[in-house]
Design a protein around this nucleic acid. Sequence first.
DNA 1: GCACCGGAAATTGCATGCAACACAGCGAGA
DNA 2: TCTCGCTGTGTTGCATGCAATTTCCGGTGC
Lengths: 240, 240
Amino acid sequence: MDDAAGRTRTERLAAEIAEAIVTGTLAPGSRLDEQALADQYGVSRTPVREALRQLGTSGLVEVRPRRGAVVAQVTAAQLADLFVAMAEIEATCARLAAQSMSPLERRRLDALHDAMGDLARTDDPASYARANTAFHGAIYAGAHNAVLSDFALSLRRRLQPYREAQFRLEGRLARSHAEHGAVVAAILAGQAVEAHAAMLRHVTLVESSVEGLLAREGVDEGGAARPVVPGTHGGARRQS
Amino acid sequence: MDDAAGRTRTERLAAEIAEAIVTGTLAPGSRLDEQALADQYGVSRTPVREALRQLGTSGLVEVRPRRGAVVAQVTAAQLADLFVAMAEIEATCARLAAQSMSPLERRRLDALHDAMGDLARTDDPASYARANTAFHGAIYAGAHNAVLSDFALSLRRRLQPYREAQFRLEGRLARSHAEHGAVVAAILAGQAVEAHAAMLRHVTLVESSVEGLLAREGVDEGGAARPVVPGTHGGARRQS
DNA sequence: GCACCGGAAATTGCATGCAACACAGCGAGA
DNA sequence: TCTCGCTGTGTTGCATGCAATTTCCGGTGC
């Protein structure tokens, strides 16, 4: 368990806290008490503070000067912005990928897409979700632009709690795979405009699918300031 | 001078160091010694460390575990990535702005563009640069998407040292204004695709203009790992 | 009953101190 | 002469302690 691995405590803390937020263990809006976190992870407040600042700039937590940090509250409006931004960035990556992916990258993307077809047919949401991350990651990488791909990855992380549940929707896997098919076809053919459009459609559909889920969970979508709670994934343990 | 203004030392430090980097006072690659910065600003190492971490996540400085922080070195390849990303994001914002700007926002954008015409004709690079920031900011805001506009602003900040010089190029102001004209026309007409294309063209032209400048300053553009130094703007003072 | 105000507890912001690691310089051996 | 290892110095990482601010809570006046 002691995988120090050369990294510093601050880094490990940032990673662990981020993980806890992304997986839903730390619910949005919950207070991040420095001393409590320090006790919990067996360190002092200093590395905790640095980790929180770091997560603050990346948007996962909100640090209010002299008033402590909380897990970032995402309102419906902000969630919509995040999804729109995600869709646009992904679509841009897809367009660039269509223009600049190497033949090897294209073959690998095609193979990955094929493999996901099997997962969709056997209806294995967990495996599909993992492969889905790899699929989109391959397209980010194929854009050959570190800045865009970093941003896409960070957006994906921030949206993680909200998109996980949707793969369990009936038939979502098959539809997702079909949408991917359009993206892959356009990229393989080097059709930039089509790749952009196909990806934009795909991610927008994911968004509406998530919105449907949230609405079903009783989230008032019109309300502006009300925070959106992601679907509960496993026990949301709280520290006393 | 003591404008504490409720903000914490860490925040002010982060802002000041960022300013120093953006304006070129702190040259890329220069070491950021914690104790030296602490002495320079009359604080202890703790807020300096936190500020550096913060700037680290936003990409302005590079923090290497146990090896100190340096002002982010931007290689030619990374600079190209930054400009491509900037162009794509700006173009996306322009497309969204064309779709969703309010009539009031459109009128203001038009007025701003008109005012910049005068600045371009009287050839006032400093004022034009300020107005230019406002112009692009108006388009980010017009996209009505906080995530995209934040990202665009942060990219703009990171590229600031590299784009400042280009307004001094002969005739660049007039050309910039003409390119803006195409963007504004498309946005006012609600033509999303044209707005995207016009903005992409504009920012790409800025990029090639900057690349021309850098090449003239003797930067080996083919070399991968060699860092690019921005044009010197004023006295690059060093701390002893 | 409600708003306002003052004091105590809690929590953050920051300074300081110590230990661990990185890097430079020097000397011994091949 | 070159390489390797050792030691010393400087810097970073982290723990701890104190001061300042916020927040909570009870009391008072309206």
